[in-house]
Design a binder for these strands. Structure first.
Length: 777
DNA sequence: ATAGGGTTAG
């Protein structure tokens, strides 16, 4: 039998970095016989030296054991060296390498060995199948399973578990009944399939259908109840099980700890015959989850042995109660940081407003995962740096990061905040691919994203697809409709929610009341407001009152609105006065409007938006001196007008505009188009409200008013660049200006397009010359 | 004596 050198060596980046260049060339030698290959006769002296003296079968076994040991210690480079030096190998040798690489998370290396292996046996196939499953590639595992020459019960068990782990319960069950031989592990496999996918009733039925289960299965069932927070049933299992091992005790202790029953947990902890790092960690995280940080720390300090999970639990506890200093101290003292530790600290800094520290950790950490990305992106977004958040998105995509449920949720909510619809859609695509769509956790995030990005119909499509809608799903959709001005749809949905037997909460009712107000359903709104305490036990808060004042004000019942404000059980806040101001403006009651504005200034002197509203109110009734006074007051109180800007997304790029902006590369085209639109609008009867008032305005202000506002620029740019037939979505950071609102109505009719504007308060859908807000916002 | 499938904590 002859040895033949492989054309390519197994490459290992880790080795290449750590070892000298001469050892990089170690190559895997392939043997052509089945199991034991005989030594080579002709070989260079140099090579003979490098080889291990492997003659007898027992020598091979010794080497195999040594390889196993190396692999268990994570020294897979040393294992490879030994492997390469063996003149004779058995299939066990090869299998040990494959399995060893897999347990060291070196999937690619494992696959390479598998591919080069001269003669695979059953174990090789089985190991590789479970490797693919571990690597989240069920398709490839299934292919191997179908390809392999013969299968044994281990193969069947492996594929069964693969289906179960990927949520295919029905497939797993089919496999279970199809397999020719079943053993204890197969039975546990199907039990685990039910438990892992939350189908506890089926798990329980299966469990009772058969006597005598091994302790692993008892633990599995108990763990299922723990995951579903059904602690009483978990305890019942614990009490009935014939034999208990360490896992059983640990699971039960975790049950108590997670349920906040720390005394019971403590009692079991003391009774437990064996304690390991799991037991101790369960106690620490139990105390942490129940806010007993000092007790957690006492247990933590007493632990005989800590792993990364224990440290992370303690650090997370400090983060939770915003003890950034203590969290950092532990993080720095921690000997065994893992990705989780870094992620926890990044989140900690990001949530406490220190994004630059978060970023520096992010850049320094050795490996990043999807949580790291979500944390840093969320950090930028929450701290108002949406541009950097977006940049990081692009970076992440380039990095090919794999996403899980929580990172999807986090990233989607960032998309929603910055209204990055294109990115949101791309992430939606990935959500579908990852089969997370029907879960309400990710589903709700998707739903909110579409609502906030101005896509109410797409939002409803997502809503329909959520299998188990929860309160959040309903609230998001109802409030989404209300904010978009679709009051009728919101109310219909509310009725559907009641029929579905979901109990509304205060957030639901804010949506319902504002929907009534948008639709002009005064009596319905009043009835809901009056009955919600009795029907659902919801006490009206200031948001509910604000809705009601808006509702009455819109209908011109300013006296009733004022009366309701007086009857409020608490002081009116700025938002409530704002509703009254809006109503006064609409119905031309300058005196009341002025009073409301005064109140708002007193409550929120920094509120620049109110300055604009009040100036407009004065201007509309020709009170120019008061407009001037207003400006002076602004200057005196040092209130800076937040600069208004609008943005629009075109082909995955966000274009931002400010008033009179001429920095955009397409500036000339935009202005020319706006001039053209101006003529056509005037022809349709549009009169610029700014030009009406010009005679009595200071020169500086005059100029400002003559310049195009940011929302007009964004709309014009979008019409020029977004293909006909597609809606235009513009976001503005402040409330949309009155003149622009009128203009956009005309524009929507002239160009025949749907224009959706999200301002700081709500959505406006402009189409055919009207807006869904009914000109009241 | 060495390799493969099932349970627990963040």
């Amino acid at each position: 039998m002859r040895f033949r050198q492989l054309q390519s060596a197994i490459s290992c980046p880790f080795r290449a970095r750590k070892l000298s260049s001469s050892s990089i060339n170690v190559q895997i030698k392939q043997c052509n016989n089945r199991n034991l290959s005989k030594p080579v006769r002709k070989k260079s002296i140099k090579k003979q030296k490098a080889e291990h003296r492997v003659n007898s079968n027992s020598d091979i076994v010794k080497c195999n054991i040594a390889i196993t040991k190396y692999m268990r210690n994570g020294q897979f480079d040393a294992a490879l060296q030994l492997f390469n030096s063996m003149a004779r190998k058995t299939s066990v040798t090869w299998n040990t390498m494959i399995s060893g690489y897999l347990s060291n998370d070196q999937f690619e290396l494992a696959k390479k060995v598998f591919d080069k292996m001269p003669q695979r046996d059953l174990v090789s196939w089985n190991v590789m199948i479970s490797g693919y499953i571990k690597n989240k590639n069920l398709g490839a595992a299934k292919m191997l399973f179908d390809q392999m020459p013969e299968r044994d019960v281990v193969s069947w068990n492996a594929i069964l578990s693969g289906y179960a782990q990927n949520g295919y319960v029905d497939e797993a069950r089919r496999i279970f009944y199809e397999m020719p031989v079943r053993n204890e592990i197969s039975w546990n496999g199907i039990l685990a399939a039910y438990v892992q996918n939350g189908r506890l009733e089926e798990a329980n039925r299966l469990f009772e259908s058969k006597g005598s289960w091994p302790v692993v299965s008892w633990n599995c069932l108990m763990g299922g109840y723990l995951k579903k927070r059904r602690y009483v049933e978990a305890r019942r299992v614990f009490d009935t099980m014939p034999v208990r091992d360490k896992v059983s005790w640990n699971t039960m202790i975790s049950c108590y700890a997670q349920n906040g029953e720390m005394q019971a947990a403590r009692k079991l902890f003391d009774e437990s015959p064996v304690r390991d790092v799991f037991t101790w960690t369960a106690m620490v995280s139990g105390y942490v989850q129940n806010g007993m940080l000092d007790e957690a720390r006492r247990v933590f300090d007493k632990m005989p042995e800590k792993n990364a999970v224990s440290w992370n639990a303690m650090i997370a506890g400090y983060v939770q109660c915003k003890r950034v200093d203590l969290a950092r101290e532990l993080f720095e003292a921690m000997p065994c940081r893992n990705i989780s530790s870094w992620n926890t600290m990044i989140t900690c800094y990001a949530q406490n407003g220190d994004v630059s520290r978060a970023r520096s950790l992010f850049d320094r950490m050795p490996h990043r995962d999807c949580i790291s990305w979500a944390a840093i992106i969320g950090g930028y977004a929450q701290n108002g740096d949406s541009e950097e958040a977006l940049c990081m998105f692009v970076e992440m995509k380039r990095d090919g990061e794999r996403m899980n449920r929580s990172s999807f949720t986090c990233v989607l909510s960032t998309c929603a905040d910055i209204a990055s619809l294109e990115l949101g859609k791309q992430i939606h695509g990935r959500v579908v691919k990852a089969r997370f769509e029907s879960g309400c956790y990710v589903g709700n995030a998707l739903l909110a994203m579409y609502c906030k990005c101005g896509c109410i119909e797409e939002a409803y499509d997502v809503f329909k697809e959520i299998e188990e809608k929860d309160l959040i799903s309903w609230n998001t959709m109802i409030n989404g409709y209300a904010r978009h001005g679709f009051g009728f749809e919101a109310l219909q949905l509310f009725e559907a929610m009641e029929r579905a037997g979901i109990r509304p909460d205060d957030v639901t009712m804010v949506g319902v009341l504002s929907a009534c107000s948008h639709t002009g359903l005064i009596d319905t709104g009043t009835a809901y407001f009056d009955s919600m305490t009795q029907d659902y036990g919801i006490i009206a808060n200031s948001k509910h009152y604000t809705c009601m004042i808006d509702l009455l004000g819109r209908a011109g019942r300013l006296d009733d609105a004022q009366k309701l404000m007086k009857d409020m059980p608490f002081e009116a806040d700025a938002a409530t006065w704002g509703a009254l101001l809006g109503a006064s403006r609409m119905h031309g009651n300058a005196a009341l409007g002025e009073k409301a504005a005064e109140m708002i200034f007193a409550l929120e002197p920094w509120n620049a938006g109110m300055y604009v509203l009040l100036s407009n109110l004065y201007a509309s009734s020709g009170r120019w001196p008061d407009v001037g006074k207003m400006r002076l007051k602004m200057r005196d109180t040092g209130v800076k007008k937040v600069p208004g800007y609008s943005w629009v997304e075109v082909q995955n790029k966000i274009h931002t505009f400010s008033v009179g902006d001429s920095t955009h590369p397409e500036s000339h085209r935009i202005y020319a188009f706006l001039e053209e639109l101006d003529l056509r609008m005037k022809h349709e009867g549009y009169v610029s409200s700014t030009k009406l008032v010009l005679h009595d305005v200071e020169e500086e202000e005059k100029e400002h008013m003559l310049r195009y506002h940011s929302e007009k620029l964004a709309v014009a740019f979008a019409i020029l660049n977004i293909p006909t037939g597609r809606p235009i979505r513009v976001i503005k950071n402040l409330r949309v200006c009155e003149d622009c609102h009128t203009a956009i109505k005309y524009i929507s009719k002239i160009v025949g397009r749907l224009i959706i504007v999200r301002d700081s308060n709500r959505f406006h859908h402009f189409g055919g010359g009207v807006c869904t807000c009914g000109d009241y916002w």
